[in-house]
């Protein structure tokens, strides 16, 4: 996905590279519009909160604009941007004191659309037509993501949701490939411990149908 962007972007640059220079603000706006969904998506998966994700996305683009002069035209804009995004999100999420994680079975969880759902595992047998509760699964995975460290979370998000290779993640996170490998291994291990029982329950219910 990221590679396609780069190719698409460089193609458009080749075509759109103007005889008349495009203003900085116009050029920046078109890049923002192209990447805003992805930048917001990463923010949402990192923070788990739509409001916070919107704030982070705005701040990321403002920071990108401030250093837009240092972006070398013709190079990969998305990696340059995601590096800013990564640094900002990890710093901000660490700086803002995380609320203590107190899990309660009664506690309701919020989906990416802001809807509230019960945390308990849905009783598939009571509703045999319900095979796949996407929102609930998303919220459950998000809950698990929130429980791991920001570095691990970012590495896993870039790999599994954004589809970057380890080498690309290393460039984005400003670290070595070995560290990326380690973060993804540890991040997934922690996620596995939280998510696997839930996934097993789901697949058992589906197979019983």
């Amino acid at each position: 996905m990221a590679c396609e962007w780069v190719i698409q972007l460089s193609n458009e640059y080749a075509i759109a590279r103007p005889a008349q220079p495009v203003s900085k603000a116009t050029e920046f706006e078109s890049l923002v519009r192209r990447h805003q969904n992805s930048v917001y998506n990463i923010a949402l998966r990192m923070s788990g909160d739509p409001e916070e994700a919107r704030d982070l996305t705005q701040e990321a683009f403002v920071r990108a604009y401030r250093s837009f002069d240092s972006y070398k035209r013709g190079t990969s804009f998305d990696k340059w941007l995601y590096r800013i995004v990564t640094n900002l999100y990890i710093d901000e999420l660490r700086r803002r004191k995380r609320r203590p994680y107190i899990e309660s079975l009664d506690q309701r969880i919020t989906t990416s659309e802001g809807d509230e759902l019960d945390k308990e595992i849905p009783d598939m047998s009571s509703n045999p037509e319900t095979v796949y509760d996407r929102d609930h699964l998303d919220a459950f995975i998000q809950d698990a993501l929130d429980s791991i460290s920001p570095e691990y979370r970012m590495a896993v998000i870039l790999c599994d949701i954004e589809g970057f290779s380890y080498e690309e993640i290393a460039q984005i996170m400003g670290t070595s490939i070995g560290t990326v490998r380690s973060r993804i291994h540890r991040g997934r291990r922690a996620l596995r411990e939280r998510i696997s029982p839930y996934l097993e329950e789901r697949s058992r219910e589906v197979s019983q149908k």
Binding site: Q36, Y40, R192
Partner: peptide, 18 residues
């Protein structure tokens, strides 16, 4: 776990961000 993550619903950035 990898499949569950990669199948999470993609979100749209709110228009007001820009």
């Amino acid at each position: 776990v990898k499949r569950a993550l990669s199948s999470m619903t993609p979100t749209q950035c709110p228009e007001c961000v820009w």
